[in-house]
Design a binder for these strands. Structure first.
Lengths: 230, 230
DNA sequence: AGGCTTATGTTGTCACTGTCAACATGAATA
DNA sequence: TATTCATGTTGACAGTGACAACATAAGCCT
């Protein structure tokens, strides 16, 4: 379908997507309207239907783009890390940071269009994000900075923690500023990664330093049919 | 406003609320419609406007009722615990269990109507839920089963963890059944509570037992203007 | 009792939305 | 050059949230 960019409006699809992302960032996904997006793009209502089967399908695409940006945020944040363990923690901070900057977009990505087809629908991008996290975990394990157990429970735990922090912070349920929320993310990550999960015997663990502020976890997403371990 | 139950329809408000809760449980908050609720209650559209200023206000009330049920779920789950620490963990399982049983309702409670008035709007019920959690944490601290540090960071961490597990599981992002999700919640809780947060020196910690399955965290919600500690 | 006020519910209406069908247009292709 | 098909437009329809005007019955006050 994605020809080059011939025709009338020269790649409308992307223009619509951008307008949708912007609009959602402004008013949120509930007030968000297909027709308004069309207006912004200076096309008639119904023009979007040549590129998206429905409003929900547009939202799915918006979500996909969000996952790309989320991955970018995590990767950028990780880059500052000097050890696998630190990169893992910074990865989580990148996750929370993205969520705080684009709360509406984040909501669309995780809470909006249960896309009918059950298993792993639009999750392609989400899987990539989860892959980044898993990468961090296994790297830390390989470096001996994390117990060499099944990485999945570890990754899930870390993911759930940062995701929970992000959602609660967005909802205004944590009485913390954005900065403090990031700092808290580091703190909480440290708590989690300090000790191996109960199921698996410990392995050498480095205490990163004192306490203060600068910790991270990781974050990602996907619903692959991993071999379960619990 | 809540007189006895005189008038035409004998306490419509509650009928509408029940219908709304039911409808949201069926089709979710996006497909949910004021007019449909009115139909179910056998009143004209616009009848709801005598009891709720807008659709969003109805949703806020639905959310409030959800928090009551959430608290009930946590309390019921806690009741089985034999030690403060175990009760804390079971509290978290009750949290996740509620979310898995009523995913739509859960979404309304945490992700829907940013209720205009900034600070702590409909959070009255949410504060109560958070209070339950905080109770559990301080009880465990008093029993020496948790480090006697500031309970807030501990409570936030635990809350974020179970909230994250709940949201991810609802979204189908954890490849785990409902049962396995609860078991994983216990597992992850154990991981978290096993060691004091980095900021505060450790205190005697009981290793509850081996590994297997039966752990919990806790869960709650609120956005009180607590004195922050991070 | 009678009359006022007010809480409650109804009818009618409006702008707006998502979606469908029918039509128009211009690019690529034969 | 004629055909075809991707793209965009116009027009319509049912359904929605919200408002205004109206109807009714409960409660209250002499």
């Amino acid at each position: 379908m994605p020809r080059s960019q011939p025709y009338h409006h020269a790649n409308l699809r992307q223009v619509l997507l951008d307008a949708a992302v912007a609009r959602i960032g402004e008013v949120g996904p509930r007030a968000f309207t297909l027709r308004e997006v069309a207006r912004r793009a200076d096309v008639s209502h119904n023009a979007p239907y040549r590129h998206f089967a429905s409003k929900d399908e547009l939202l799915v695409s918006v979500a996909a783009e969000g996952f790309d940006r989320l991955i970018a945020s995590m990767r950028k944040s990780m880059a500052r890390g000097k050890s696998p363990r630190e990169r893992l923690e910074l990865c989580g901070c990148g996750y929370v940071d993205f969520a705080l900057r684009w709360p509406h977009h984040f909501l669309v990505m995780f809470d909006l269009p249960r896309p009918a087809n059950d298993c792993e629908p639009s999750h392609a991008a989400g899987e990539n994000a989860f892959a980044v996290l898993l990468e961090c975990v296994t790297a830390a394990q390989a470096a001996g900075e994390l117990p060499a157990s099944d990485p999945l429970p570890l990754a899930w735990t870390a993911w759930a923690l940062v995701h929970g922090i992000a959602k609660l912070a967005i909802g205004g349920n944590l009485p913390l500023s954005a900065r403090a929320t990031i700092a808290f993310t580091r703190h909480a990550s440290q708590t989690i990664f300090r000790v191996p999960p109960a199921t698996h015997p410990a392995q050498p663990l480095r205490k990163s330093s004192q306490a203060a502020k600068d910790e991270k976890i990781k974050g990602a997403r996907a619903s692959p049919r991993f071999s379960r371990s619990l």
